[in-house]
Design a protein around this nucleic acid. Sequence first.
DNA 1: TTGTAGGCGTTATCAT
DNA 2: ATGATAACGCCTACAA
Lengths: 358, 358
Amino acid sequence: VKEPHPVVERSTIYEVARRSGVSTATVSRVMGNGTGFSAATRERVLGAARELGWVPSGSARGLAKRRAGIVGLLFPDFSESGEAEDESPLYVDQIIRGAERAATLAGDAVLIAATRSANGRELAFSVAGKVDGLVVLARSLPDADVAALANSVPVVLLASRPAGSGTHDRIGADNRGGAQAVARHLIDDHGCRNLVFLAGPSLSPDSLERFAGYRAALRAAGIAAPRRPSLTGGFTESGGARAVQAMLAERPVPDAIVCGNDEMAIGALSVLKAAKIKVPGEVAVTGFDDIAATRHVAPPLTTVRQPMQQLGEQAVRAVLDRVRDRGAERREVVLATELVIRRSCGCRSKTRREWAAA
Amino acid sequence: VKEPHPVVERSTIYEVARRSGVSTATVSRVMGNGTGFSAATRERVLGAARELGWVPSGSARGLAKRRAGIVGLLFPDFSESGEAEDESPLYVDQIIRGAERAATLAGDAVLIAATRSANGRELAFSVAGKVDGLVVLARSLPDADVAALANSVPVVLLASRPAGSGTHDRIGADNRGGAQAVARHLIDDHGCRNLVFLAGPSLSPDSLERFAGYRAALRAAGIAAPRRPSLTGGFTESGGARAVQAMLAERPVPDAIVCGNDEMAIGALSVLKAAKIKVPGEVAVTGFDDIAATRHVAPPLTTVRQPMQQLGEQAVRAVLDRVRDRGAERREVVLATELVIRRSCGCRSKTRREWAAA
DNA sequence: TTGTAGGCGTTATCAT
DNA sequence: ATGATAACGCCTACAA
């Protein structure tokens, strides 16, 4: 059976103009929320447009206005890189949501593209042509490619290496401060002295910064800390589980395991449970990001909240601003992170403030 | 301090042509992965492009080829509709991921836009102009608007009302079958006779279908079932919690609570726990979707897996196919769902098959 | 292999 | 308030 499908040959402004008895200029005026036409004309034009199912071509419009009304978001997708499991996908999803919100609010749309294994460079330049500006999430592309990209279109770096990383606008979260805060809490409020840090991918700026904050806290407490993280879990749940498993086989249980993100902490929790090691009784565990699952695991995870949606929002706002004024001063925004105390650190739902008071 | 920012005035094909000593036609050829030029020319052109930081304008290209190389994804965002909490955001995020993957694979990009309270119609038509085709997630727009949209651009419905819903292509999951499967499992394998269904938003096609499947299972077992769900939780965790809370105050604890999605089931679990009602001991609880958190709650949630990424993938594949051949036969795809047995139903990690064997 | 030139659908500048 | 009419930056026959 051959089902007839309504063929929609896209109509043009000319047809609308003819049908409504005006010039294309007038049609353009009523569509471009401009002014300079009577109410009657407006209705006629809108009516004709509706009848023809016409919507102005974004391409033609973009060409004429030299503005596509689209901002791109480039992020890395590691889901095919060996691991069957995605690497902190929730983090990226939140950023996407934030970006979408800010863009829509500004009357723009957002184009998303995940750079995978090899296609990165090519993909990046493909989307660069379609957008007015680009926000590039950390580890989406090699630095050289990012530099080249920035030579073709306004680029804002997201969650990348802080400062000195070049001449681009940059939005990020205070990873260092957040990590330092959890570690300090563990040390000061729970008396931990023997801690270990479970790091993410070695080239993750986030992981690097968090480790730096962790070290700073230890240093401040006069506790020796290794120069490099002793444990590595690739930011995934299974990676975190494996790392802790291995640790258990090699050394005594520490006072606390400070994890580079929530997924790894959750993985840690599960192997600790399987090994019948009590959390937080025998060892405290903390995460980073504050993804939804942190509230559901047992015990609820103490972690550091990162304003993920805001990161996305601020990033597109930054590109949009730069698109409007390419000569503007370079922007560098660091959003605050917040210690979220639950049970896995040893607290019983007390807030940080209550601890301070005690 | 006024930091100088590298101003990137976008260059054009003309400048590249001049700089590399060829015509614009040749430049176009080497960019459009076409053929018809010597290796030497190619290098010269590419070099000039790189030096100028030139990438072909998507707008100009789209206008000339009558193809933007972009497909749009429209989804609803309920996060501002009173509830502070998002409604099953994870579901949408997965679909976005799938859509992105399929689009990138096809050499296209995907534009995302969330329809909120009022902006819906306007937003939809705005993105319609920027894309070659549109996948519209259920409840993004009133039916009338969808119909109007489809009159302007190829539209594929995602997770919407099945069949008869008009003349659009449609991709969905077997919600009915999945719901029927869990319910049957509860009845046949766990001897439940007194079940209740916790529904989502009343106009959610997914919720409707799941309830229908639930009823079918009861009917098949000779159990009376109400025509309409007795409990409603708006697909959110807090909504699910409230609904179960209310239920507890009004009637005896049932044998099982079949939830319309995982978030509500998780909410149910938490109030049940607070009320010291044992799951699955006193009451079984099941979810739908199989989001990540289902594995972390206690007890792990028995649920129905829905291939969320695949939904997104298939949907963009469908639009892309339709863009290529507007006269093609209408497509209607229903992806299979899968019963995922964990502990909240009363099973001890047994698979469905093992139950069948027993 | 390469160049010429018309056209793609809008917007915007001048006129009127 | 409305109409002509150049751009806008690229693609693609058609020629050479």
